[in-house]
């Protein structure tokens, strides 16, 4: 569709060209190749493209769609199984106007300095992609020129301890017989760092099977779009494979058993963040798998904060 696309009128240069932190000031230089006539306004915007999931059609709890989330009806005509879609939205954070004289955006360089607010979420894959945008309002389709940059997320100050972060357990009606205590050495980590900690398990019921204890990272992406209908529950992903921390363990009812664990965050892990349309949360999840075909799997998780800066 190049026929209908407007010619690029300008290029953007960012200083510093490296990753920036919240509260840093970014200098944006606009190089306009030749004067642009018919302009009503022009501005430089800093913001991010925020990815999220939404339910694209119908009411989620409509009577007519009862049972559509069953595996039996997956992919069947007339159901909206898989009715969730990925989308993104532009979130403008801060902007500054450019000089427009008598409806003409003059050629040559123009420079603006913009300070990133302290609450700016860090760059995170498809969830948060920061861009500096030149927005030229003119007759017909507006012209937008974008240049991406990286924002590092800083650790919360004061850094939370592991005990202050959520411990989630006992959410399932079945397979809920173990009391978990999970502690990590710190509450905040960078991607690529090793997370060390201990897990203590105390069975409440008699145990007649041996157990395997394993640990992995769980990443939850909550979608909370402002306008669109959000999906039910967060999108869940794990850092595979699981790391076994103890095998063939004989747990005893009422007896507390403690195990150390250590596992490394992936180098490209997204930071913990809360953006306008979605959020990312990280957990260390412990699984206790009892032996045998009918052995229950029990799980619990402790939150950690991942920061990139």
């Amino acid at each position: 569709m190049k026929l209908f696309r407007r010619r690029t009128v300008a290029s953007l240069r960012l200083d510093p060209g490296t990753a920036v932190r919240p509260t840093d000031t970014l200098t944006v230089t606009v190089e306009v190749d030749e004067a642009v006539p018919g302009v009503t306004a022009a501005r430089i915007e800093l913001g991010y493209v925020n990815g999220f999931r939404y339910h694209w059609a119908g009411k989620q709890a409509a009577l007519a769609s009862q049972g559509q989330d069953s595996l039996l009806t997956a992919g069947q005509l007339g159901t909206n199984y898989g009715g969730d879609k990925d989308s993104d939205a532009w979130v403008s954070v801060i902007d500054a106007p450019l000089t427009v004289a008598a409806g003409v955006l003059g050629s040559g360089p123009q420079q603006v300095q913009l300070r990133l607010p302290s609450w700016a979420p860090g760059t995170a894959g498809e969830v948060v992609r920061w861009e500096a945008r030149l927005h030229v309002e003119r007759s017909g389709k507006d012209t937008v020129v974008a240049e991406s940059f990286t924002v590092l997320s800083v650790a919360p100050d004061p850094a939370p301890t592991s005990a202050e972060l959520p411990l989630i357990q006992g959410e399932r009606a079945l397979a809920n017989s173990i009391l978990f205590e999970i502690e990590t050495e710190r509450g905040t980590y960078r991607p690529g760092e090793e997370v060390r900690g201990t897990v203590a398990v105390t069975p409440r019921d008699p145990v007649d099977r041996s157990a395997l204890l394993a640990v992995w990272f769980q990443q939850l992406t909550d979608s909370h779009p402002v306008e669109k209908n959000p999906t039910l529950g967060p999108s869940e992903s794990f850092v595979r494979p699981m790391t076994s921390i103890a095998k063939d363990v004989r747990l005893v009812q009422g007896q507390r058993s403690e195990f150390p664990f250590a596992l490394t965050l992936p180098a490209d892990a997204m930071p913990t963040l809360e953006a306008v349309h979605s959020s990312v949360r990280w957990f260390v999840q412990i699984k206790v798998e009892f032996s045998g075909m009918t052995g229950a799997i029990e799980r619990a998780e402790r939150g950690i904060v991942v920061h990139t800066g």
Binding site: H55, Q60, V91, V93, I94, R115, P117, S118, W119, D222, S223, H224, P225, V226, E227, N229, P230, T231, L232, G233, P234, E274, A275, V276, H277, S279
Partner: peptide, 11 residues
């Protein structure tokens, strides 16, 4: 600095 934009709500 500008106030943080209001976030949406989860389901």
């Amino acid at each position: 600095e500008p106030p943080p934009p209001e976030r949406g709500q989860t389901a």
